[in-house]
Amino acid sequence: MYLYIYDAFVQDKKYEKELQKVENRLTDLGIAGKIVRLGLFRRADEFIRDEVKRGGATTVVAVGNDATVRQVIDVAVEAKVVLGIIPFGPDNRIAAMFGVPEGEAACDVLSARIVETIDTGVVNNKRFICEVSIPAAKAEINCEENYKVTPQGRGTIGVRNLFVPGENESGPVSNPFDGRLEVVINIATKSGGWNFWRSERGESVLPLKSFDVRTQEPVTILIDGVPSDGTRFDFSVEPGTLKVVTGKNRVF
């Protein structure tokens, strides 16, 4: 059975027509299911756990954006159900990586049901699919208790599980099947030569399984686009733990 989790913003009037089209298409395809509408005080994980306990839900579909998916990942992994996405609105990077088009067209991808099993990253007991961004700060990375990596300056750190660089992004492609997270450190270093003030960007890449990042001052990190505060972030990877419905335009 399909369980559809509607994010609160999807219930806005501006999405009403598009949502109606989606619901009609799901009915035509024979994959309509139970709908849960999230609100300010309604958590997705409780509903999903209840439905799985009853033996009903085998596929959970996040109807919304990356933030909606973020609310569903943990319970989808724990309950071993398949995760689908019907993207609405802005901030839909995860859906784009999965090759799922926006709105009504996503229903056909869901119906075709190409399921892949990918790794998930974990930061402070919260799972993520694509990337955690840590803003420029004085930081150190302790790697598998064997060695310490220290950027000699304020560097941004990206921790990536599934990542293909976009137009204004750099770094390697991150493979969600390799059982590792790529840590990408970008810092500006002063170059020598004729222009003293010119700086160059040095990009370090470390494929790791478990490590922690500690910052000297509190920072706000983005976990698949969702903010979280702290000074210590413990990372690990859970290989092959998340089943996802993907489209033919997926990047992996």
């Binding site: 990596v149 220290t150 000699q152 293909v164 493979n175 500006a188 160059e200 990009e203 470390l206």
Partner: peptide
């Protein structure tokens, strides 16, 4: 795009750039 069979066996490429100390 990704090679699933070999993905888990390869260590991947590590780059320690200028300005980073290990």
């Amino acid at each position: 795009m990704f090679n699933r069979d070999e993905g888990g066996r390869e260590g991947g490429v590590t780059i320690i750039a200028r300005g980073v100390r290990v």
